[in-house]
Simulated assay, not measured.
Amino acid sequence: MTGLVACDPGTLSLGEGVPAPRSSVPHVAVSTSAYWVREPLALVGIQRDLGREDEQILGLVNDTTLKGDNFLLMLAGSQGGADLPAFQLKSFVERVGGAPSPFSRVSDSDLRSGSDALGTYFWLEYRSGAQTNCVLAIRRLGLGSRILPARAKSLDVMLRNCVLGPIELALAPILADRIGSSVGGNPSGPRLMSPLAGPTL
């Protein structure tokens, strides 16, 4: 397990393999009751207000020896509504600071796809040896399926997860049974999520 996320929440966004900061706005640590999803593998959470969207990053357990940290990065946007624009893969990766290690490039042609109760999700695979498997997974959630963070009308999600086990285990944090509900709910009122169209360049 990497020690970075366990010892200093403020360094999570600067950790090796985690996308670089996109602005000078600092992250602040958040309690588990403020996490936007129910994630049992989360070791620490940080968050910041970027104006038109809020960003929350959860540092996840990593039992592999690969360089970099496992994380779930979420962008809660205040723009949009029932008809969100098509998800732009290239612009999303740029928004979050680029593809994390060990993924050097991301394109639509490389993506695999699956679906669950919340709709479609997409991922890349990286395999190291017989047991270590990594995914870089993304999905967009909009109005229609569950409570969103306050002010949000969409939730864009990126998962970097390397595990000692199958790809299905690596994908677990971005699937509906984990990401389909929040820890504490939303006291400001219901804002729901729904699946959206797939990534386009």
Rank of each mutant, 00 (worst) to 15 (best):
S145F: 10
P26K: 15
A42S: 04
L192R: 06
T120N: 04
F87I: 01
T64Y: 10
R151H: 13
K90V: 05
R38M: 09
E125T: 10
S107D: 09
V157S: 00
G68M: 09
F92N: 03
A82G: 07
P187Q: 15
A152D: 00
G98F: 14
G15W: 14
D177L: 05
A197M: 15
S113P: 02
V96W: 05
P21A: 12
Y35A: 03
G80P: 09
D8I: 12
V106C: 05
N133Q: 15
W36N: 12
P102M: 02
L89C: 06
L136Y: 10
L14D: 06
G51H: 08
S31M: 04
Q47N: 13
A130G: 10
A6V: 05
A150H: 12
S181R: 14
L58Q: 11
N186Q: 08
S109L: 09
V30W: 12
L4W: 14
V5E: 04
G144K: 11
A152W: 00
L171G: 00
G184C: 06
A42W: 06
Y126G: 00
V44H: 13
M193P: 02
E53S: 06
M1S: 09
S23M: 11
S23R: 09
G10Y: 12
L143S: 08
T11K: 11
S115C: 13
G59N: 08
G98D: 11
P100C: 09
N133S: 15
L14E: 06
V25D: 14
G45P: 03
D156V: 03
Q79G: 01
M193H: 11
C7Q: 11
L43I: 03
D108F: 13
P19G: 07
S182R: 15
S154M: 02
P100I: 05
L143G: 02
P149A: 02
V5R: 01
S145Y: 14
L41G: 05
E16N: 10
A197K: 07
G17L: 10
G185V: 08
G97C: 08
M1R: 05
R160D: 01
P100D: 11
T64P: 02
S128Q: 11
S182L: 13
N62V: 08
L196P: 01
D54Q: 06
